[in-house]
């Protein structure tokens, strides 16, 4: 018998979500969206609970989670970094900025540093094209970021 452990309040929230969708297997994607809101990501344990609550197989849940790029099984870092790869940012060198983050943090897009401090993702347009290329870290927005400015930005997050 295998055991999986989840914090009680979040587990109850998840069960409530499943119930609000009538524990219907056809609502799997909607339930996963809510689950990712609650937990920040979709670890195996959460998928096990979703499967049980909706009476579908865990393999099926994982099939859906691994298919849609919106769903992630990796927890976001303490400081989630997003680099805008929309048209305006892209033509103004966003990719080189992204490369610099990848090089300095030694992680790829969709990954989190082993110490859990930073995670890296690409996004499409934050509506600040005048400031292109744009990077957001948590709630903070950085404009006109150049590759050689990346090191300095990261240095702001010492803790």
């Amino acid at each position: 018998m295998a055991e999986i452990k989840l914090p009680e309040n979040k587990l109850n929230q998840l069960k409530e979500v499943a119930k609000s969708f009538n524990n219907d297997g056809g609502e799997l994607i909607n339930v996963l969206h809510k689950a990712q809101e609650i937990f920040g990501y979709l670890p195996a344990e959460v998928q096990e609970v979703v499967a049980k609550e909706l009476n579908v197989s865990v393999a099926h849940v994982y099939g859906v989670v691994s298919f849609y790029s919106f769903f992630t099984m990796t927890p976001k870092g303490k400081h989630p970094i997003s680099i805008c790869l929309g048209t305006a940012c892209y033509v103004r060198g966003a990719e080189k900025v992204l490369d610099e983050f990848r090089k300095l943090l030694k992680i790829q897009v969709g990954e989190t540093t082993p110490d859990g401090k930073f995670s890296l993702s690409g996004l499409r347009c934050v509506g600040a094209c005048g400031l292109a290329p744009v990077v957001t870290i948590g709630e903070k927005v950085y404009g006109r970021v150049a590759p050689d400015g990346v090191k300095e930005i990261l240095a702001e997050y010492k803790d």
Binding site: M1, A2, K5, P7
Partner: peptide, 10 residues
């Protein structure tokens, strides 16, 4: 044997 997966709270 019980080979199921049990969900427990932390």
């Amino acid at each position: 044997f019980d080979k199921s997966t049990k969900i427990v709270v932390e």
